[in-house]
């Protein structure tokens, strides 16, 4: 590990003479810079997606955990009576911290996104909702259902378990998928850099032949290419990351409440993760170029 680190440090050590050995221009220079830029751009969005999915999962989990709802559907003349009965039961159920019947206005607000603002709630058979908050220990859902069935036949307990688990799972998988995307982007970057490095090595066959003739070790020749490609990748990745950051910044923030996409923008210290992207892509380019260079050089006399 230490020897690899030493080798990497030696590869990126500036050496004016060595750096001038490889011509600075050429299509491989532009290709490497462009590839690193594009990949940097994509990595930022994949990272944003991963973090957003993670936040979403946590938000859903937190919002649905330790809460439950009792839904009461009963004939109009029995609704208030059953609501009162349910509240009485809940008040005496261990593990329930608070229980509160939603007002008509609150229920209207819940339905508003689907039915609009002019909903005549009083004319529709809308069930009444009682919002429950559990304490740390939680309550016995099965026992509560039995008591509700006996005292308030129109009451149905929903402890959110059937919603919470798949939602949190989906968010977790989305986050994982985004991380896989970042891995794929890294591998693609490596493949592109290897192709570009091989093209550069082929285009500079005469330079390599001269260097071998005068006693250059493989490490010296490889370093001339590695440093060039690493710097190109680093610069390209910085440009790509900067553009992605601007694009992300232009997206609505979490506070804007625009559905799922509202959280795609980085929050707080998450922006600092962007700093790591260019060095990581440069490291990928370094290892890819070194691999390509050593493979090519080992085939030469």
């Amino acid at each position: 590990m230490m020897s690899l680190l030493r080798e990497i440090l030696e590869l990126i050590r500036p050496d004016f003479q060595r750096d001038r050995v490889v011509p600075s221009t050429g299509v491989t220079a532009r290709l490497t810079g462009f590839t690193a830029g594009a990949m940097g751009f994509l990595v930022v969005f994949a990272l944003a997606l991963s973090l957003a999915a993670d936040r979403l999962g946590q938000r859903w989990s937190a919002a649905l955990a330790q809460t439950a709802t009792v839904r009461i559907s009963a004939p109009a003349d029995q609704v208030e009576m059953q609501v009162a009965a349910v509240l009485d039961i809940l008040a005496t159920t261990p593990g329930i911290q608070t229980a509160r019947s939603l007002t008509a206005e609150e229920q209207q607000n819940l339905l508003q996104p689907w039915f609009g603002t002019d909903l005549p709630l009083e004319d529709l058979p809308i069930p009444r909702l009682i919002d429950i908050t559990e304490d740390e220990a939680g309550f016995d859902a099965a026992g509560l259902r039995l008591r509700l069935a006996a005292e308030a036949p129109g009451a149905v307990l929903d402890d959110h378990a059937r919603w919470r688990k798949p939602l949190v799972q989906a968010a977790g998988r989305l986050s994982w998928l985004a991380m896989v995307c970042i891995g794929v982007i890294g591998l693609t970057t490596a493949a592109m850099v290897i192709l570009a490095a091989r093209a550069a090595l082929a285009a500079n066959a005469q330079v390599i032949a001269v260097l071998r003739l005068i006693g250059a070790k493989d490490h010296y020749i490889a370093a001339a290419f590695v440093r060039r490609f690493t710097l190109r990748a680093f610069v390209g990745a910085n440009v790509g990351v900067a553009l992605a950051a601007l694009a992300l910044f232009a997206l609505p923030g979490a506070a804007d409440h625009v559905a799922v996409l509202s959280g795609l923008r980085f929050q707080g210290l998450e922006w600092a993760a962007l700093i790591a992207v260019p060095p990581v892509l440069a490291l990928v380019a370094l290892l890819a170029t070194r691999y390509a260079a050593m493979r090519v050089l080992e085939g030469l006399s």
Binding site: V21, V210, K217
Partner: peptide, 26 residues
């Protein structure tokens, strides 16, 4: 006589010094 064509004659002649690490100044 192969040379590194984008480097000057002086730099080409000095290249073995750079390669061996014995000197870097052309």
């Amino acid at each position: 006589c192969q040379f590194i064509d984008h480097l000057s004659v002086q730099e080409n002649i000095a290249m073995p010094l750079s390669v061996s690490g014995s000197a870097t100044l052309a």
